[in-house]
Simulated scan of single mutants.
Amino acid sequence: MTELLNTLYVQTQGAGLYLDHDSVRIRTPDDESRRTLPLRRLDAIVVYGHVNISSELQARCAEDGRSIVWMSRAGRFLSRMEGPVRGNVLLRHAQHQIHDREQTRLAIARAFIAGKIQNSRQIMLRGARDVPDADRKRDIRANIKECETYLADAAGAVSVDQLMGIEGKTAQTYYEAFGWMLRPDNDTGPMRGRNRRPPTDPVNALLSFLYGLTRSLVHGAAEQVGLDPYVGFLHSLRPGKPALALDLMEEFRPVLADRLALTMLNRHQVQARHFETLPGGAVNLTDEGRTIVLTEWQRWKQREWKHKLLKRGVPAALLPVVQARLLARHLRGELSDYLPWIPA
């Protein structure tokens, strides 16, 4: 159990959270003592795996507008609760209408992919500069050139399906370079492409965990602004699939998740001992590993990044809110285009 910057993270399996007047009472199986935290100190509660939350506490959090996020023990996003929907119906109505306009939807989807490719390119440029091995530098730079070609292809895409194909090729090229950016003395082993559901090596396990945190952040931003997280422009509609949250997440993956993963691995903050292999081959972070990553994630969210449109620094935790507001302005016709966030 960890309280970090107004967010309570609970990963002790079998723990229970209960409402106790204006506080949350925490019980753990191996500790008879009771710990309480004032609810006014908490903006969000995030639980991993088998953690029980009483219906009374859920109702109070919904009433207060305090989010509760459920994650799998491996860090995969499962669900989010935040009480009554915020925002006005006119914005969501405009969002639904634009989803049905093929060319407008395509233009927004192109922007999401352009942001992802540009930010992936930034990570690779940094990696090519930092890796000492000349052969790795050459290979990373070759992949950068390849992604620049995909960026041009995305600008000329004539359908969302074509865009998704370009995104897939970009991801394959990018994750190949990502493996080369890991230091050779990293004891978690090499990364040979992206694998998930479940991840089968420590690097992919760390990426999946950070992607889950990023997704929760972006999903919350969409709801905060009043957008419908389930009606997107790039990802297809499917019951229970937060398509817009996945759309907005694309431009943030490289900087918020991938760069943090590289930093933690190359600095040996996360090591092989912080992972466990489960029956069947799935790899997860251990409890200690999750605590380390969550601590660094909270620090990472406080880092300010320059926003070109706003012409000032914005904490990473607020960047998804800024972008969701820019998207809302575009949907309402106040901005001619949606501009993805790219670090200055």
Rank of each mutant, 00 (worst) to 15 (best):
T2K: 11
E3G: 12
L4D: 03
L4S: 11
L5N: 12
V10C: 07
Q13S: 13
L19M: 03
S23V: 05
I26K: 02
R27Y: 01
R27K: 12
P29E: 00
D30N: 13
S33G: 13
R34E: 11
R41W: 15
I45F: 02
I45R: 06
V46E: 04
Y48W: 04
H50E: 14
V51N: 04
L57N: 00
A62D: 14
G65T: 05
R66F: 10
I68N: 03
W70R: 10
R73D: 15
A74S: 15
S79V: 05
R80E: 07
G87M: 05
V89E: 10
L91C: 02
Q95M: 03
H96T: 12
Q97I: 08
I98H: 09
R101D: 10
Q103C: 09
Q103W: 12
R105Q: 13
L106G: 02
A109V: 04
A111T: 07
A114H: 10
G115Y: 05
I117S: 02
I117F: 02
S120Q: 12
P132R: 00
D133V: 10
D135H: 14
R136P: 03
K137G: 02
I140G: 05
C147F: 11
A152K: 13
A152C: 08
G156S: 14
G156C: 10
V158G: 11
S159K: 03
V160E: 05
D161I: 10
D161P: 05
L163I: 05
T170H: 10
A171Y: 00
Q172K: 10
T173H: 00
A177W: 07
R183S: 13
P184T: 02
P184Q: 09
D187V: 07
T188A: 11
G189S: 02
P190W: 03
P198W: 02
P199I: 02
P199Y: 06
T200R: 15
P202I: 01
A205H: 00
A205K: 00
L207H: 04
L207Y: 13
F209M: 00
R215I: 11
L217S: 13
A221V: 07
A222P: 00
Q224T: 15
V225S: 06
G226N: 02
F233G: 03
L234H: 12
S236N: 09
S236W: 10
G240L: 04
P242I: 06
L244H: 01
P254L: 01
R267K: 14
A272E: 06
R273S: 14
H274G: 07
H274D: 15
E276A: 14
T277I: 05
L278Y: 07
V283N: 06
I292T: 14
T295H: 11
W297P: 03
Q298C: 14
Q302S: 12
Q302W: 06
R303I: 15
K308C: 09
V314C: 13
V314F: 09
L318S: 12
L318Q: 13
V321N: 08
R325I: 11
Y338D: 05
A344S: 12
